[in-house]
Amino acid sequence: MSAGGDKGVRDLLQRGRAFDFSGQQQAWLQFKESMRRDRTFDFMVNVKDLKLDVSHGPILYIEDLNVSFDGFKAINNLNFYVDAGELRCVIGANGAGKTTMMDIITGKTRPDSGSVFFGQQIDLLKLSEPEIAEIGIGRKFQKPTVFEHHSVFENLELAMAGDKRVFRTLFAKLNGPQRDRIDEVLGIIGLREHAHRDAGSLSHGQKQWLEIGMLLMQDPLLLLVDEPVAGMTHQEMDRTAELLLSLQGKHSVVVVEHDMDFVRSIANRVTVLHQGSVLAEGSMEQVQNDPRVVEVYLGE
């Protein structure tokens, strides 16, 4: 009886001791952890030092992503991968979560849970919008947003890849190669004769092109292109398709588009989003023949 009692007391004491010291122990462990020399800590990482690692194939990993707005699940357990150098089309009805997905990749919206990695090592959820732009993700918006009070040339100049810190920008001067690059892009987007016009006075299609040009100037590794051909004529659409196809290989491109003809003309692989998750993925024929896809999207 008494032995059992002693044991009980000893147990209690030990437990008590363990409990007492657990806080300190934890602090000690944290301290030890922070002294490890083989680890780099997030707060010490300079964006410039981040290296893109695509050795396993994909350049973009989205896993178990969830986000809801006022109870509406805009993204629901989404898993989505894009290979390096791939041109991928994403289709889906309104509200399927396409734009929200882009918002999350570019840092505009923070998800409730899940992970988004650029290559294998760069956690995009820890970076701000300018940092994400700096490591090489460019975005074209659904509604073309160009700087209306700047000329076409200046729009491209501002978007140009380079040191974008305040004092560097204050003293920045265009050099020869940079001018050539701007001129080259002006040629690609067919706006050379409009170079010194205010961007605000361009037509809708021209603004779309200018925005694509700004993306090219940024020279990103991954381009997110939201509805590039909205408001374009068929000719313009063909040229856009040509341009996007020419980027393939050197850049990875994700195109969100409603226009099925356009998607058919460029896509190797298509991902269909529905209610915030992937409904089907594969070649255009596969996707088109998928009964679920036919039911929710193409069959309308």
Binding site: P130, A133, F147, L158, K164, V166, Q218
Partner: peptide, 10 residues
């Protein structure tokens, strides 16, 4: 927002 997305720390 656009300025932020082309990489300037607004």
């Amino acid at each position: 927002a656009r300025t932020r997305f082309i990489g300037y720390r607004v």
